[in-house]
């Protein structure tokens, strides 16, 4: 049963975090370089952090980076860890965490479909939610959904006055 401080010492000793922060009670966020994130995942998994809630992706358009956040939880310490890393937006390539958590394959497939991030080693990245979608991955910040909708669909005209203007 570690508390937040002991956990932080463990992380500082074993992994080279760029930034560590206790956000709230039972919530810790750790920032790492992309190259040693997968190694950190397997390290934490062996230290009772077996539950991978989900993998989130945030598109920082101005800084030209995708931020991948891995949410782990331990059934002993009852602490949430959000492992963050930033990868370049242009190539948008990252390794898969499939070997550590097989379920990550579907979270990565989801991120690939909505952000276009390539996960090396995960061969099952084809379309799942959308159906024959030829445009920009929709969750990127530079995809404007209102402009897309205006030219894709016409609006119902209530005797002359359009619904949106």
């Amino acid at each position: 049963m570690r508390n937040e401080k002991e956990l932080l010492e463990l992380i500082n000793v074993h992994l080279e975090p760029q930034a560590v922060e206790i956000k709230r009670e039972q919530n810790v966020s750790v920032e790492l370089a992309p190259k040693n994130l997968i190694q950190a995942l397997s390290f934490l998994k062996s230290h009772s952090y077996q539950h991978l809630s989900t993998i989130s992706c945030v598109d920082w358009l101005e800084e030209g980076a995708f931020e991948l956040v891995y949410h782990l939880f331990s059934y002993d310490d009852y602490i949430n860890i959000s492992l963050k890393t930033r990868i370049k937006r242009e190539p948008g390539i990252f390794q898969t965490a499939k070997e550590i958590w097989p379920v990550a394959e579907f979270y990565e497939r989801d991120i690939h479909e909505f952000f276009g991030v390539e996960f090396k080693g995960n061969d099952n990245l084809e379309e799942m939610i959308l159906e024959n979608w030829q445009h920009l991955p929709p969750m990127r910040k530079d995809f404007d959904t209102r402009e897309f909708v205006n030219d894709q669909y016409e609006w119902r005209d209530y005797n002359g006055q359009k619904h949106t203007d």
Partner: peptide, 9 residues
């Protein structure tokens, strides 16, 4: 084990 591995709670 399957549930914990999969993240089902």
């Amino acid at each position: 084990e399957e549930a914990v591995e999969m993240g089902a709670t």
